[in-house]
Design a protein around this nucleic acid. Structure first.
Lengths: 68, 68
DNA sequence: AAATAATGTAAAGCATGATTGACATTACTT
DNA sequence: AAGTAATGTCAATCATGCTTTACATTATTT
């Protein structure tokens, strides 16, 4: 599962730390999620997408056919 | 965070076990999620919503004002 | 070029999502 | 009413999201 966090974040000129604070997790978590290291909880995914005034499906891209 | 899984599941006449198999988790996980005991991963939330031909936001309802 | 901000990496530990198994209870069927 | 399917509950264990700390690297600014 990929995501657009890095791009959306830069479009809003936010640092990883800004986003981390806004959604209430550590910067490490943002890094790990941006780089696809793990699956956030749905609650966190929701908070992140809200930080970008988007819905989850606009931020997280689910493998149509297997996640290259 | 509430969700409509139980209702959607019944509308499709699926058992918890049916759903569990279809999305690849244990029945316990379905029970726990249906009853709001915990936050699924986004991947699982996505698979569940796909089982109902819906998007995440149609299945999971995020606390408008704090989750009674 | 030096200083500082932002990003990346690594490892240890904690919190909780998810599994398994066994049993109790409530609904359907016959 | 008896039998079976479906749901619910409890507890132990495993897997992984998430935190914390500390440092290294890459950008940005002056």
């Amino acid at each position: 599962m990929r995501n657009r966090i890095k791009d959306l974040r830069k479009a809003k000129k936010m640092t990883q730390e800004d986003l981390a604070k806004q959604v209430g997790v550590s910067r490490q978590s943002i890094i790990a999620i941006e780089s696809g290291k793990y699956n956030p909880s749905i609650e966190l995914a929701y908070n992140i997408s809200k930080a970008f005034d988007s819905i989850i499906e606009e931020v997280f891209i689910f493998g149509e056919r297997g996640e290259e």
